[in-house]
């Protein structure tokens, strides 16, 4: 108990004896001049900027835990142009590219609408694709094929419209379309499960089934030294006219290996022109021809890409010389 008075005494002494003489001028706060000083370097200026308030919908995009939703980051046009089947590609050929503008660790979204006007037919397709990093793409799309006057001629009704749903998946297994060894393209495997919504009719036309799955193997590379994009895809399919007219034949014709090729020339960051070729089986004996196009695509903004093409779809359901215009708009995040 004696310690308390002695401590109090020490305190009193400490208080009585001035530790240091009081400064005459107002006390200096050490950090004040630092903050007031002219800050020269950009990194320091950024460090001193107030932290902005974080919201779920700030400029970095929607943030939900670890995946970065819609944050973008891909180089322009390297997400490809939606194909008529809803996958990332070049319009009619599937590419190894992954839809959406996301980078590894991100999730992106892509939506498209395409119209093809032919002498005797009209094609409309629209769909969405979700990309997970640079790894996986899942897509769903709908195609409507208007037979117009041909419908009446074939006895299926004026303006009969064939409909098909396509559910696609694509997995990048190796390489990068832009980076890495110049001899190693981006390689992807995938499938497209297609369901014709005209089951009774396509069976009447001779098809074996109204639903089937295509299997694809794609390789795509941007050859920077030549500003050329090269794509080759092998498709194992039994689809008649992509599946609009069903799959295989009742007579037994089935799966077959088909080829899709694209060549593109990059005019600028935003513009590319090119040509495509897609071989198709002719199981039904209706003169199902290979498809070709020449296209021009332009990235109007980081998110909106417009594509115009001249397509030669050959003969469709015995009506030949189906050449016309292709217009597509793609929005990607």
């Amino acid at each position: 108990m004696t310690s308390i008075p002695s401590c109090l005494l020490a305190l009193a002494q400490a208080a009585a004896v001035p530790v240091a003489p009081l400064p005459a001028e107002p006390p200096q706060i050490a950090y004040a001049p630092v903050l007031d000083a002219e800050v020269e370097t950009a990194p320091t200026q950024r460090a001193l900027q107030p932290v902005r308030t974080a919201t779920a919908f700030d400029e970095d995009g929607v943030q939900t835990g670890k995946p970065r939703l819609f944050k973008g980051g891909k180089l322009l046009l390297t997400n490809g142009i939606s194909t008529v089947e809803g996958s990332s590609g070049g319009g009619i050929a599937r590419w190894a590219t992954i839809a959406g503008r996301q980078m590894p660790g991100g999730v992106g979204l892509s939506a498209h609408a395409t119209a093809v006007e032919l002498p005797d037919y009209g094609w409309r397709s629209y769909g969405v694709a979700v990309g997970f990093g640079d790894r996986l793409e899942l897509s769903v799309s709908r195609a409507d094929f208007d037979t117009r006057d041909v419908g009446a001629a074939l006895g299926i009704g004026q303006g009969y419209t064939f409909n098909m749903d396509t559910f696609g998946a694509k997995l990048r297994v190796a390489g990068d379309v832009v980076y890495g060894a110049s001899w190693l393209p981006q390689i992807a495997v995938g499938l497209e499960h297609k369901r014709s919504r005209d089951g009774a009719l396509v069976r009447a036309l001779g098809a074996a089934d109204n639903e089937s799955t295509d299997f694809t193997l794609s390789a795509t590379k941007l050859v920077l030294a030549r500003s050329v994009l090269v794509n080759a895809t092998l498709r194992y399919t039994e689809a008649n006219e992509l599946g609009l007219l069903g799959f295989g034949t009742a007579a037994g014709a089935g799966y077959d290996l088909q080829f899709e090729g694209s060549l593109g020339y990059q005019l600028s960051r935003r513009a590319v022109v090119g040509a495509e070729y897609r071989s198709k089986p002719d199981n039904l004996g209706l003169g199902d021809d290979d498809w070709m196009d020449i296209f021009a695509a332009y990235a109007l903004t980081d998110h909106l890409t417009l594509t115009a093409a001249y397509v030669d779809l050959g003969s469709i359901a015995t009506f030949s010389d189906q050449r016309g215009g292709f217009l597509s708009a793609q929005v990607a995040f």
Binding site: D176, Y179, G180, A181, A225, R226, S227
Partner: peptide, 20 residues
């Protein structure tokens, strides 16, 4: 010119493995 730009990028792009 854009084609010349790409020729420089063609030399740099394969180095990504050492950078990323």
């Amino acid at each position: 010119p854009f084609a010349a730009q790409n020729r420089l990028l063609a030399k740099l792009a394969p180095m990504s493995g050492q950078v990323v």
